[in-house]
């Protein structure tokens, strides 16, 4: 019994001692290491742009003031199979902030490996590689006004795009569409033409939405076969002309576009899974991509 009293006393002393701790706070502030700034590169090259443009900025820590959008002291070089293809100079006019290639760039889908190198004083030099994907032609495309029913039961316009997927390789595709309307202004007897992006949607389980209204598709489920993507749009055929783009993407660009869209969708949703925006920039962040676009004009 004597022992019991000792044990009980020890128990209560331990409890009282522990109870005094820090006003019962159950929150601990975590020390995070200082953020070491690095380069963020935005380089999206396509076969329709012989003038290549690169945006370069600097990352900043959570508790730092955001820097200016673009850095103006970057040195940028593009290599093909380790041979310098072009250097970049600061853009002017509408390209102010971006860097533009000094030479017109020949778009050659010969399997050559392109490496983009970006250096800025006092920041780690970054690089990324890409191989230009081959152009994949659209073999059929159609636009039918009120041609299908949306998941909400509404009559909507249908866009159908078919293409042949090259066998034996991983391929990634993007689809976007544009409409073109024109109107006549009596006051100055002029016809104006306006172009706008048409947002395509689909119930195809293989397709996903990417950033900036592009629909994404991987060929994992249809390697080497003819594939038809059926989309719908609420555009209602207002456009007189209609353009469909089939973008042959690299895997890195496909992942970038998809994760960036997921990031934007999840922003502010506490129930959403965390999103890491994909990057192919070594020692930095952002994207260097090369993509080949095939365009078809169709009449609604």
């Amino acid at each position: 019994m004597k022992n019991l009293k000792i044990y009980l006393s020890l128990f209560f002393i331990a409890f009282l001692f522990a109870s005094c701790e820090d006003k019962f706070s159950q929150v601990v502030e975590v020390d995070l290491p200082e953020h070491e700034p690095m380069l963020s590169v935005s380089a999206h090259f396509t076969n329709f742009d012989s003038l290549l443009k690169v945006g370069v900025s600097k990352t900043w820590g959570l508790n730092e003031e955001p820097p200016a959008y673009f850095l103006d002291n970057a040195s940028i070089k593009l290599f093909k199979n380790d041979v310098l293809v072009s250097e970049f100079k600061a853009g002017e006019g509408t390209y102010y902030g971006f860097y533009c290639s000094e030479k017109q760039f020949p778009w050659e889908t010969d399997g050559g490996v392109f490496r983009l190198e970006v250096a800025v004083p006092n920041l780690p030099t970054v690089s990324a590689t890409q191989v230009i994907p081959k152009e994949i032609p659209i073999i059929e495309a159609s636009y039918e006004v009120e041609g299908t029913i949306s998941p909400d039961g509404e009559k909507v316009d249908e866009v159908v795009i078919s293409f042949n997927d090259p066998p034996g390789e991983e391929n990634y595709y993007g689809f976007r569409a544009f409409g073109e309307t024109s109107y006549y202004d009596e006051s100055n007897d002029t016809t104006y033409t306006d172009e706008y992006m048409v947002y395509l949607e689909t119930v195809d389980p293989l397709a996903e939405e990417g950033e900036s209204g592009i629909l994404l598709l991987s060929d994992a489920a249809f390697d080497g076969k003819k594939q038809t993507l059926r989309c719908y749009t609420y555009d209602y055929g207002y456009g007189k002309k209609f353009y469909v783009h089939l973008v042959h993407l690299t895997k890195e660009k496909y992942r970038y576009l998809r994760s960036l869209r997921q990031y934007q969708d999840a922003d502010g949703n506490p129930f959403a899974e965390p999103v890491t925006v994909s990057s192919n920039i070594e020692n930095g962040t952002g994207i260097f991509s090369m993509e080949t676009v095939n365009i078809v004009e169709i009449e609604p």
């Binding site: 935005s42 999206h44 945006g55 990352t59 959008y69 960036l260 925006v277 365009i295």
Partner: peptide
């Protein structure tokens, strides 16, 4: 999320070229 970055690009046009205006995420 312990740091931020800007990621930018030009909008595309119907002819496949880039527009004269850009976006920054």
């Amino acid at each position: 999320e312990i740091f931020n970055s800007y990621q930018a690009g030009y909008y595309y046009l119907s002819d496949g070229k880039k527009a004269d205006y850009y976006y920054v995420n």
